[in-house]
């Protein structure tokens, strides 16, 4: 923070004040004057896709945005691992300073109580199954791939704290990289069925709101997740289509990404 002392610091504070006042005043001005715009149209169509409106927004109406959001997490993890030495490159022809290699953290696990020692593993298993439950509930209730990934990697971190190097969850380098690649690659490729049959990338052929998908594709991607909604207004049938599959891919990606960060920062990254 030394760089922010003196004139620079004063300038930074003034700039932040101007930005803050401008932002807050515009929020006050906006209050009560927000135009609903496209959200009205989205909400009026929501009952045609997943029962969980948020899942429909995130993975269908704005599903392609979410792909890049997912890629942000992936890139963030790859870059973080690069900072501590994974995939650093040098010119063959021109020797430079050696790249940084990170050492693993030092563990002191003697102080673990008996209860933690014996309940750590079951807790990790239960967290795993909780994460899986969350991802399978993506289209019907609060849940989804991001949350699943975070819960699963939390289990990994918990086990690393309890057991140190002797981690019962042995996410290896290859598994973590592979699952991340399968996740982001899977999410990207889930755009392909819609692209090949209707011409629109990532069209939700299972839900098929606009009736442009071939019936066989609608059956393959829609039927496994079709639900009947028993409401006061009557019984509705709707299918989230590819949303549950996207969520599984999303979960894989987040596990791969956050798992890579945890792995690299806890156990260090050494090239074998």
């Amino acid at each position: 923070m030394n760089e922010l002392r003196g004139k620079r610091g004063i300038l930074a504070v003034i700039a932040l004040l101007i930005i803050g006042i401008g932002f807050l005043s515009s929020l006050f001005e906006l209050a009560g004057n927000v135009r609903p715009g496209v959200s009205q149209i989205y909400n009026s169509l929501a009952h045609l896709v997943a029962p969980n409106n948020i899942a429909t927004w995130v993975y269908d109406w704005r599903g392609y945005d979410t792909l890049l959001e997912t890629a942000v997490i992936y890139v963030g993890a790859v870059v973080s691992a690069m900072v501590i030495g994974r995939g650093v490159v040098q010119m063959k022809s021109c020797p430079q300073e050696p790249p940084a290699q990170s050492k693993p953290l030092e563990f002191h696990i003697e102080t673990l109580t008996v209860i933690l020692k014996y309940l750590g593993l079951p807790a990790a298993i239960l967290l795993f199954s909780y994460g899986i439950m969350v991802v399978t509930a993506s289209s019907t209730s609060g849940g989804g791939g991001f949350q699943c990934g975070v819960i699963m990697t939390a289990a990994y971190l918990l086990a690393a704290i309890f057991y140190g190097k002797n981690n019962p969850i042995r996410f290896g380098k290859r598994f973590i990289i592979g699952i991340g690649a399968a996740g982001l690659g899977g999410y990207t490729l889930l755009g392909l069925p819609g692209f090949l049959t209707t011409g629109f990338w990532q069209y939700n052929i299972g839900a098929d709101v606009w009736g442009i998908a071939p019936s066989i594709m609608r059956f393959i991607f829609g039927e496994p997740f079709r639900l009947s909604l028993v409401l006061k207004e009557g019984v509705f049938f709707s299918s989230p289509g590819i949303i549950p599959l996207i969520n599984v891919a999303e979960a894989f990606n987040v596990i791969g990404a956050i798992g890579l960060i945890y792995f690299a920062f806890i156990y260090g990254w050494q090239e074998e």
Binding site: I132, P224, L227, P244
Partner: peptide, 15 residues
């Protein structure tokens, strides 16, 4: 509807 059991099957495979 089949949409009610498929989450359990997916959960089993992921497990």
């Amino acid at each position: 509807m089949i949409g009610e059991i498929s989450p359990s099957i997916i959960a089993f495979i992921l497990g």
